[in-house]
């Protein structure tokens, strides 16, 4: 069975910088994954709906706006409401270390990458953590 990892790369909220998200999308594509990119200014509701319809394994959120402490929990809660909490949420962006810790410990994010993280480390993390069964 030719299973492929599917990832939704999403930009929630109001920040308009998607260079990072596009670099990640491209990098995951080159690592053999199917990447759904939904563009800028997505609401948590739109992201969760797309994640469910596209049946992705991972949602990757790119957040540079500082609203991460609101957006991550909101998206996680919506996934849960829809019985889709098995979809992993990861993120990237300018997120302070203390917040990274709080988001992961709170269970709202499975992993968060901050500036300087290599594409390899992100690809490796996804390959290791997606359950291919």
């Amino acid at each position: 069975m030719a299973r492929k990892i599917r990832v939704l790369v999403a930009k929630p909220g109001l920040d308009g910088h998607d260079r990072g998200a596009r670099v990640i999308a491209r990098g995951l594509r080159d690592a053999g994954m199917e990447v759904v990119y939904t563009g800028l200014h997505q609401t948590p509701e739109q992201i969760v709906e797309a994640a469910i319809q596209e049946d992705v394994d991972v949602v990757g959120l790119s957040i540079l706006s500082g609203a991460h402490m609101t957006l991550f929990p909101r998206i996680y809660d919506l996934l849960k409401e829809n019985g889709a909490e098995d979809i992993m949420v990861m993120g990237g962006g300018t997120i302070p270390e203390a917040d990274v810790k709080a988001l992961i410990e709170g269970g709202w994010a499975a992993q968060i990458f901050t500036p300087g993280a290599t594409l390899e480390s992100i690809v490796d993390w996804i390959n290791t953590n997606v359950n291919l069964n």
């Binding site: 492929k4 999308a25 199917e34 990447v35 759904v36 990119y37 739109q46 596209e54």
Partner: peptide, 27 residues
């Protein structure tokens, strides 16, 4: 690589929350 960038949804996001619409991207 066998990967794909599925970007058609970007143009259809207006309907993301409409229960009467189901959108699926495929490679």
């Amino acid at each position: 690589s066998g990967g794909a960038l599925l970007g058609d949804r970007i143009r259809m996001q207006e309907h993301a929350l409409d229960k009467g619409v189901f959108i699926r991207s495929m490679g």
